[in-house]
Design a protein around this nucleic acid. Structure first.
Lengths: 247, 247
DNA sequence: CGACCTTTTGAACGTATTCAACCGATGTGG
DNA sequence: CCACATCGGTTGAATACGTTCAAAAGGTCG
């Protein structure tokens, strides 16, 4: 009732972030909140921010103040060692939260870089903590989001620690596929937003190995690949490949 | 009161968990709490549990109900794939929290196994959430603990994704050393609680490679190793080795 | 004390990397 | 709008690193 949802000539740029209208609310922080609770969350999700392709949303070492919910676009996070080597720690897409690494010591510990023009919702962390003390549903869901990140990381460790090159790539493609499905896109056809080198960094492989593995998958009829455009032709085949590691 | 564990002469086993007396309180969940807050925490840290060497504290798939603070002892966590391959995701020592992985979907996603006779404090998770709604310091600290786990995992990804065998082992030894120091033990001399195979699983290497790398370090005068007994002779040397990856 | 598990070490092997050349796509400035 | 420069991707051949297989020695625990 006393909701926004304007009449006529309300300038688009004035429309505040409205989680309740966001089609990502089932993937994002508002999951499970009732409309009253959602309204409270909207109050603290203060602003949106645009990040152009190639730009950093935040940088390792910067003070941590807010989490970011990806409204649209695609990001990578990476960590860089003193000697220059870097490791991509994840690829994030719409509805996912960026910045959780910064809570630990109030400084970001990785870089977040937009792989395409993107838009994020700012969630000042002190506000989020305050609100989640009042809204148990939000509190619990936030804890689950953090925990899910830990579980995801364990999956990456498994991938890096025990899988061969082609298994890693298969796992990577299947994971992307799943996440696209959850967003209403095709599970079988998508554009990669990242380069072979970035995929390689994430998977602990060199870009040449990634490229060779793509070619091999194509030869075997598992996928059709043309640069960044991927069509998965045989999902069960990829799954089989993934779980038949060392024979 | 209606508790088990009979009375008689103030039996030692009756003494309740008392965070305020625990010498791990500066490493563990109570960090930063005042005495009133600590008292509240003690109320919910209900019981202790002994876990014998080789026994599982929890198992992947089991329903998640509580976190566990390690009071004494040493654990590993691992994840097992359908095809039997397994990945050690971490080694945990006193003052560290086990079970964070279970929050995400209310089921544990890894196994926690005691590598020596150990004792843990049970922290029922619903109680913890309730209390952390009342105690902002606790809430914030808990968030930091979870975030720290995420940052740690990123470090492991870096290790698995970009480091060579010897660098990984050096990083592993230096990490253990640091953690022992934080607990008042020697940074340079300690017993490994895990086998070469478990180290290898954690580091994404085979046990033979771990063994060979230990021998190499010994030849180079970096460490003295005798089975599970380690003496680090040249910490700066190990650090150098770790950061001079690909030349 | 004997059985078993862990660790060490050697030699052959295999997978991913490195180095290099080439091709195609993309984007910018004249 | 085209030409050119740059970046990203593919593919081949040689190499290197860690793995695999194997044997034996050293510890540990019933």
């Amino acid at each position: 009732m006393s909701e926004n949802r304007a009449l006529k000539t309300v300038n688009l740029s004035v429309i505040k972030t409205a989680c309740s209208n966001c089609n990502l609310r089932e993937l994002c922080l508002p999951l499970g909140l009732n409309s009253l609770e959602m309204a409270k969350l909207e109050e603290i999700v203060s602003n949106r921010k645009r990040v152009k392709r190639g730009d950093l949303l935040y940088r390792a070492g910067e003070p941590f103040e807010a989490l970011y919910a990806i409204r649209s676009g695609f990001f990578k996070t990476d960590v860089i060692m003193e000697d220059g080597r870097d490791q991509v720690t994840g690829f994030q897409m719409s509805g996912e939260l960026l910045g959780l690494d910064g809570i630990s010591n109030e400084n970001h510990s990785c870089n977040a870089i937009a792989l395409e023009d993107s838009e994020v919702c700012l969630i000042p962390f002190d506000h989020l903590e305050r609100l989640s003390r009042q809204v148990p549903t939000l509190q619990n869901h936030f804890h689950k989001v953090m925990s899910r990140e830990i579980v995801r990381d364990h999956g990456v460790m498994m991938l890096l620690g025990t899988m061969r090159a082609e298994e890693r790539l298969a796992a990577f493609l299947l994971n992307l596929s799943q996440r696209f499905v959850a967003r209403g896109y095709s599970p079988a056809e998508f554009y990669l937003r990242m380069t072979r080198e970035e995929i390689g960094s994430y998977l602990g492989l060199k870009l040449e190995t990634v490229s060779r593995s793509f070619s091999k998958f194509q030869e075997e009829g598992l996928i059709a690949v043309q640069q960044k455009h991927i069509r998965i032709l045989d999902i069960p085949g990829l799954k089989r490949l993934m779980n038949h590691g060392q024979g």
